[in-house]
Amino acid sequence: MAAKSANLYARVEPDVKERAEEILAALGIPASNAINMFYRQVILQQGLPFDVKIPRRHSLDVSRLSEEELNRELEKGYADIEAGRTRPAREVFAELRREYGL
């Protein structure tokens, strides 16, 4: 592995930096390593390693979808399964409970 000799200077919001570094510390990952990991993923993915889009503000109401729209949503789900973009239900529900204090 090449020696690390390049510097990166970035301005971020103090609150964002603090919150991110708390999480990284809990994971045992120095911020510089996390940034290096991010850059490597950018190279590997040939772009950002996550979707950049405006989040949906409301849940999807399947009862209001046409058959074509429903099929399109189901196809997205199948594509996620095939690409390994899934998580165990108990993990998702635990996260929702923590996030919403349930």
Score class of each variant (00 low, 15 high):
1 M>D: 08
1 M>S: 08
1 M>H: 03
2 A>T: 07
3 A>M: 12
3 A>E: 12
4 K>L: 04
4 K>N: 02
11 R>T: 03
14 P>K: 12
14 P>F: 02
15 D>N: 10
15 D>R: 12
16 V>G: 03
18 E>T: 13
18 E>I: 06
21 E>G: 02
26 A>C: 07
26 A>N: 13
27 L>E: 13
31 A>I: 07
32 S>I: 02
33 N>I: 11
33 N>D: 12
34 A>C: 09
34 A>Q: 07
36 N>M: 06
36 N>S: 04
38 F>Y: 14
39 Y>P: 00
39 Y>S: 07
39 Y>C: 06
40 R>E: 12
42 V>Q: 07
42 V>K: 08
44 L>W: 02
45 Q>S: 10
45 Q>A: 13
48 L>Y: 03
49 P>Y: 00
54 I>E: 10
54 I>V: 06
58 H>Q: 06
59 S>I: 01
60 L>N: 06
61 D>R: 10
61 D>Y: 02
63 S>W: 02
63 S>M: 11
63 S>P: 05
64 R>Y: 08
64 R>T: 09
64 R>Q: 15
67 E>P: 08
67 E>T: 10
67 E>A: 15
70 L>P: 00
70 L>V: 02
71 N>V: 06
72 R>S: 12
73 E>T: 08
78 Y>L: 15
81 I>F: 07
85 R>K: 15
85 R>A: 09
85 R>C: 09
86 T>I: 15
88 P>F: 10
92 V>G: 00
93 F>H: 13
94 A>N: 10
95 E>D: 14
95 E>K: 05
96 L>C: 03
97 R>K: 13
97 R>L: 02
98 R>E: 04
102 L>T: 05
